[in-house]
Design a protein around this nucleic acid. Sequence first.
DNA 1: CATATCGTTCAATACATACTGAACAAACCA
DNA 2: TGGTTTGTTCAGTATGTATTGAACGATATG
Lengths: 151, 151
Amino acid sequence: MRHTLEETRSAFIEKIGLKAQADGLPRIAGRVLGLLIWDGTAVSFASLADQLMVSRGSISSATRILLERRLIKRIAKAGERQDFFQLSDAPYVSMMEATKISLDNAKDEIDATLNDIPDAQTEIKARVAAYADFYGKMSKAVDGILTDMRS
Amino acid sequence: MRHTLEETRSAFIEKIGLKAQADGLPRIAGRVLGLLIWDGTAVSFASLADQLMVSRGSISSATRILLERRLIKRIAKAGERQDFFQLSDAPYVSMMEATKISLDNAKDEIDATLNDIPDAQTEIKARVAAYADFYGKMSKAVDGILTDMRS
DNA sequence: CATATCGTTCAATACATACTGAACAAACCA
DNA sequence: TGGTTTGTTCAGTATGTATTGAACGATATG
């Protein structure tokens, strides 16, 4: 084997961090997600800050974002004062749902513009409508996947 | 009508600017794209800088990015020294292609990690594979739309 | 009760990068 | 040929936001 498992784990965590950044999320949020995908188990708040070598404030912020998106869940352990976090049960469904909401919002905004264009402006309207349709098609496709995953 | 056509146009251009920003593109690139979607005609380099009230350097950079993504085309006009730019013929196909390429890249990176995980690590491997599958499904869906659009 | 530990908040900082504008080369013009 | 106009480049600046770390309230512990 070229790399140790530990090296592969670190590389994976960093990859997800970069991907999160590309998606407009804080990099640390992506690294937390990557760590929890890899480990699968419940990891303590302090352990996250320790392993990722970032401040507790960053962990607080990152976990809040991931919780909002339903990508992770907060867990209480008996006899433990710390919070624990674990990958949620259906993280990829949640990702798709977030993607769909984002696409729908984009379409809604363009549709709003469309409503402001007088019918006489047929060509402008056609071009803007084609743009809205782009998001509509994407949203529909994502919705199809979601339906499949749930069945 | 609540807004003049000109106001609707400006609002649309700004919307696309913000959307570009959310997609990791420079805001000005989005505004150029929005303007060209709206107008449909060939617009000169100087006119873009003038209308959007930005530097020529920014127009140079924005148009380069949009040209690379095949969202717009550069046009030469007889007797005109300036460059002109116009919305490309199939801009939304190009958008989908860019989306697909991005999804495929993400999947490839995760697959690379997957190959580094020993088979004995069944659970880790399953979680990472599920993540790769997320991108695989999305890519396949986008590809389906592309096939439809081309037929 | 006093002390310790926990997660959150927020002002200050670090950081990445979009944008500007001057310098430049190339192409055109007089 | 000298002077304009054109688009590009790139060093410097501006801008947005991620991250830190100290202060804080809440809660457990002894």
